[in-house]
Design a protein around this nucleic acid. Structure first.
Lengths: 205, 205
DNA sequence: TGTACATCAGTGAACGCGCGTTCACTGATGTAC
DNA sequence: TGTACATCAGTGAACGCGCGTTCACTGATGTAC
């Protein structure tokens, strides 16, 4: 009950909490969203199987920790993508999508976990807020491109279309379903084509 | 080793194999892709926990059975969707997408399983073929709409775009992520808008 | 600087549980004569 | 039609396993005086 924030690095272990999250992240990556156990994560962090319970209430809470951390990275990637191109350009929109797809490709297990969280009910307020934050990046890039405000109906619906699209492509890619369509083109051409198709049409008044 | 095909309905149990698949389907629906056990499925079917092994080699094989059956239904739904509108119309394309989204909404757990199968490695040839069959429905509707052949590059890439889109929308819907975008419009308007955006542009020679 | 004390991260043993899979078996069904 | 036999779907008991979680504990660290 001190007024110090929870900085407290390097206590006994160092930073077990962060190491557990990293261990779980890795396990999820290797064995899928449900392919991890608290025991295995503890083993990897070099602690007893009871130690994790000093940092997390139960198994789902650990999963939520992993998701939270992953969403931070996803958002950072999307923002970096947008920032790499002129504000308001279609390229900036496509780059946000590219960052999304890259994340999915780099960490398919975690990506699946982020969007398939059923056990640790994903309706936790902080996760909900982070999701909103990620969509906000798409929303702003879209708004800038259309010269409208982010809360405009037209912006909302076109941003959602882009999101659906990129989300679907991400999943099909990591599930290797995209090989079903034989004539594949590269990501960037693809994202630009779709962004143009969705943003390039006249805005209805 | 008789030359009879494996018809053999109503033996001892009746048709345990089908009942097990149905039980697992239901469990996956209730508890997610990994939330089922062979034991629980057997219990539901009213047999001992060893009985399933007379019909399936192991746990993953049961899952593959569920996926196979689900893909049959998905394809049938898509074909029915296409058939409900004039051949070559944009409506027919949108209707294929609508069937896909409906399937995801009706059976989110199974839908996730179909596309996230990691354990029972989804590269089984029969499942691969069924996936190809589903995409074929999109491909044919797209080809008819563009007055081109299904193996045309342009058709392939536009069909894949449509698929990405519908696939993403399906996932976002069942994950309730689509509520993040506040200004939601109804499915049909949405599917028609996107189909037009993707198919309505001039075909490059 | 030194001492006494409070804190709390991590221990290690234990629990009860349900699981996947195996095994030798039983007994209903289909078939050949 | 009746009998003998082969088949094989389903049984029930058993196995070893790893899991999630709990509990009383210990001992290193930070802090107050």
């Amino acid at each position: 009950m001190t007024d110090k924030p929870a900085v407290r690095t390097a206590y006994h272990h160092g930073d077990l909490r962060a190491q557990l999250i990293e261990a779980v992240r890795d396990l999820v990556e290797r064995h899928g969203p449900d392919g991890f156990s608290v025991a295995e994560a503890a083993r990897r962090a070099g602690v007893s199987s009871a130690a994790p319970y000093k940092h997390f209430k139960d198994r789902p809470e650990i999963l939520r920790g992993v998701v939270s951390e992953a969403m931070d990275r996803l958002r950072a990637g999307m923002e970096a993508g947008a920032a790499a191109y002129p504000h308001g350009s279609i390229e900036a929109v496509a780059a946000v999508g590219r960052a999304y797809v890259s994340f999915a490709r780099a960490e398919p297990g975690v990506f699946r976990l982020v969007f398939g969280l059923t056990e640790g009910h994903a309706d936790a307020p902080d996760l909900q807020a982070k999701g909103q934050g990620c969509f906000g990046v798409v929303l702003h890039a879209t708004a800038a491109c259309l010269h409208l405000q982010p809360d405009d109906r037209e912006v909302q619906s076109r941003a959602y279309m882009l999101w659906s699209f990129v989300h679907g492509h991400s999943f099909l890619t990591i599930d290797q379903k995209s090989t079903v369509a034989s004539a594949r083109i590269d990501d960037w051409t693809y994202l630009m084509t779709v962004s143009r198709a969705i943003l390039g049409q006249p805005v209805q008044p």
